[in-house]
Amino acid sequence: MLQVSRLATIGEMAAGVAHELNQPLTAIANYAQACDRLLGRPGADLEDVRKALREIADQAVRAGEILRRLRSLARSQPMKRERTDINVIIEQIRDLVLADARVHRAYAKLELAPGLPSVSIDAVQLQHVILNLVRNGLEASSITASDPRELRLGTGLSTDGDVEIMICDNGPGLSAQALERLFDPFFSTKAEGTGLGLAISNTVVRAHGGSLGHRPNLPHGACFYIRLPAEPAGG
């Protein structure tokens, strides 16, 4: 079931990725055509041309990274837990989060707390859960008329010493009805929702010995948080 949902999410993400890929491709085309024009003139400034060529290379690498991240997300593997820095796995999906935010015309803010203890997780599964919560948050932010739409993705340490990942939106928040059935499979407030996203996310987080919770965001919206047990220092 996780597999099905992951592929569905990837399908949705693909639209965002295609849009995001267009940016470096556009930059590459622009720089290359400008070089062509510059070199067609007598006394062309080679320093300008060199600068543009470097930009072309950078943008090609950027395009490759966007694809690589999509591929790693699509790879299916049995749960494979490794000692990981949560901020590192979030950095790996940064582009996807920003691309999805762009599609939803929202501002995404990443607030990663430094120096957090390690966690033992299956990075791909956790990334899937985070992206799912990000997507939910972006869709919620798109409902309210208040601009600007905002999504915060942050990490920190809970009062119990757990590593915490927070995903906060400024949408309308959770209704009483939604609160009651939040993690029920096939319950969805979205017209096209499968009702599996939060249910699976909850299962995945629990399998990691963690918990998935939520609280209202102020002045409106919802914050979802994933708490994962910290690994003992050293080792």
Partner: peptide
């Protein structure tokens, strides 16, 4: 990247 490449192209 789009912005600066476009600027560069327009300049050329």
């Amino acid at each position: 990247s789009v912005r600066s490449s476009l600027g560069f192209l327009l300049k050329s």
